[in-house]
Design a protein around this nucleic acid. Structure first.
Length: 459
RNA sequence: GCCGGGGUGCCCUAGCCCGGAAGGGGGCUGGCCUGGAGAGCCAGUGGCCCAUUGGGCCGCGUGGGUUCAAAUCCCACCCCCGGCGCCA
């Protein structure tokens, strides 16, 4: 039976494809040759080992059938074969471990439509939506960010405040300084209207996505390491995952992780796919190696809430689902009236698990830049191979494809709303689509968020 | 945290005391049978390696150990369930 992971198949049948993919990612290709060499050697040795074990088993089965007094010679032979088997087993085990270590480090084969390039400067915008507000001072930057596209915009004669200053100094509804004192940088307090706004955003996104047939899920917020390494590569794991001291438990960086791992070991039949889920959970991220980036405000923080779309699909349908997921996210940001663009992420900027990734980047008027709010990835069979999530097709087994896409991450969306819907007087307009969810609460804002007179906590 | 029970193929279960090729049931898939359906019967239903048909190996929570031979005996660990305690 040919149960193949695409990367392993390529390794044996078409290593050039694998090397091309690595080159596109700006990664070394010598590992492929090493892996091929180890794989060939491993297959040689395991065949040899199997033959040796067969012989040993034959002798062992013979022993109980002859009279005890005649067994001595055969027992000696069996002992000898046993020793040889043990030796060879150790060698095979070593080879297997070495091979698997390399295999586990190999990333997904990138899709042909992924742009080449070593880093995010090679990401390719594919479409723009909305009419961005552009302060005069950011016009240059806007032109650069929209190069090659005709994007209609609204020129502002005033300077909107950056989301961080607007939130903390103008609205006075956030405090990262007090939070830093107690918990460290990249933590925050949010107050009053922003709290309601966050709740409404979560409900709204959950509402939109669940209506499309995605099953709502609240997952465990911690996972064991074994399962964690089934959904993410070691690099990401080290840089972003918090560990619970003294236990084999890790705080989730996104509900994608427990939602994908939810089907570890499962075998689907065709009729059961696609499986659609919408996860809601807090996300915890160490943000190691991002010192100095986005240090103000709540754009880049250690914890936030996120509504996440997850799809388990048949292999031949995953690319179609990839498009659908990003469209779902677009629907949400269109409803929130936030101008954005979709970018196709360059191969060199892709995580190991993803074969292709779109980001939805919202326009930030005060920064004069498009910034990432949504990531939408097709992980093909990278995660399902590790977690053994299969599709049983009349006896033939394949690995399912897994996809994930942000529907809405609260903190970044709040930042985008605060900058895009900011008025000259410092108030912030609330997108009409949230009204329904705010209506439920008497003290929630309805049409606009108005600055507080005084700060709630002392400096 | 303490005490007890348990982990066998997709699911359930026998085997464990007393070591000698993992048996039964269910589900699913295919075939036979049928006017059709059902029942019945047969086969398949974990992973890996070699190969043209086919053959072999591994696998009974994990890792060690004893033995010619381990699901079975020994040691360590992990996980799940129940009870008690603690607790929002």
């Amino acid at each position: 039976m040919n149960l193949g992971w695409s990367v392993l198949e390529a390794l044996r049948e078409n290593p050039e494809v694998l090397k091309d993919s690595l080159r596109k990612r700006y990664m070394p290709t010598d590992l492929v040759d090493k892996a091929i060499e180890l794989d060939i050697k491993w297959r040689e040795r395991i065949t040899e080992l199997n033959r040796l074990r067969e012989k040993r088993n034959e002798v062992n089965r013979l022993i109980p059938r002859i009279p005890p007094e005649e067994r001595g010679k055969l027992i000696e032979e069996a002992k000898d074969l046993g020793r040889k088997v043990k030796e060879l087993e150790e060698e095979v085990k070593k080879l297997d471990e070495e091979r698997n270590k390399i295999l586990a480090s190999l990333p997904s084969i990138v899709h042909e439509s992924v742009p080449e390039g070593p880093d995010e400067t090679y990401n390719v915008p594919v479409r723009f939506w909305g009419k961005p507000k552009v302060p005069r001072s950011k016009l240059e930057s806007f032109k650069r960010e929209t190069e090659g596209f005709q994007v209609e915009f609204e020129l502002l004669d005033w300077e909107p405040k950056g989301h961080a200053d607007e939130l903390e100094l103008i609205l006075k509804m956030g405090d990262t300084y007090k939070a830093a004192q107690l918990s460290g940088s990249r933590f925050f307090y949010l107050f009053k209207d922003i709290v309601w706004l966050e709740q409404a955003l979560v409900m709204f996104a959950l509402d939109v996505i669940s209506k499309k047939g995605f099953i709502p899920v609240i997952p465990p917020y911690m996972l064991r390491q074994d399962y964690y390494l089934g959904v993410t590569d070691l690099e990401t794991f080290k840089d972003s995952i918090y560990k619970i001291e003294g236990e084999d438990l890790y705080l989730i960086a996104t509900s994608e992780h427990p939602l994908i791992a939810m089907h570890a070991g499962d075998t689907f039949v065709e009729e059961e796919l696609p499986r659609l889920y919408v996860g809601v959970s807090p996300c915890f991220r160490k943000e190691a190696g991002t010192h100095g980036k986005d240090t103000k405000g709540i754009f880049r923080v250690h914890q936030f809430y996120k509504v996440e779309q997850i799809v388990f699909s048949k292999p031949e349908e995953s690319w179609e689902w990839h498009e659908r997921l990003i469209e779902n996210a677009e629907e949400i940001y269109q409803a929130l009236e936030i101008p954005y663009r979709i970018v196709n992420i360059a191969a060199g900027d892709l995580g190991a698990s993803a074969a292709k990734k779109y980001d939805l980047e919202a326009w930030f008027p005060a920064q004069g830049r498009y910034r990432e709010l949504v990531s939408c990835s097709n992980c093909v069979d990278w995660q399902s191979y590790r977690l053994k999530i299969k599709l049983d097709r009349k006896g033939r087994r394949e690995f399912v494809h897994t996809l994930n896409s942000t529907a809405l991450a609260t903190t970044r969306t709040i930042c985008a709303i605060i900058e895009n819907h900011q008025r000259e007087d410092g108030s912030v307009r609330v997108p009409r689509v949230l009204r329904k969810y705010l209506e439920l609460f008497d003290s929630a804002p309805k049409d606009e968020i108005v600055p507080l007179e005084e700060k709630l906590i002392k400096d």
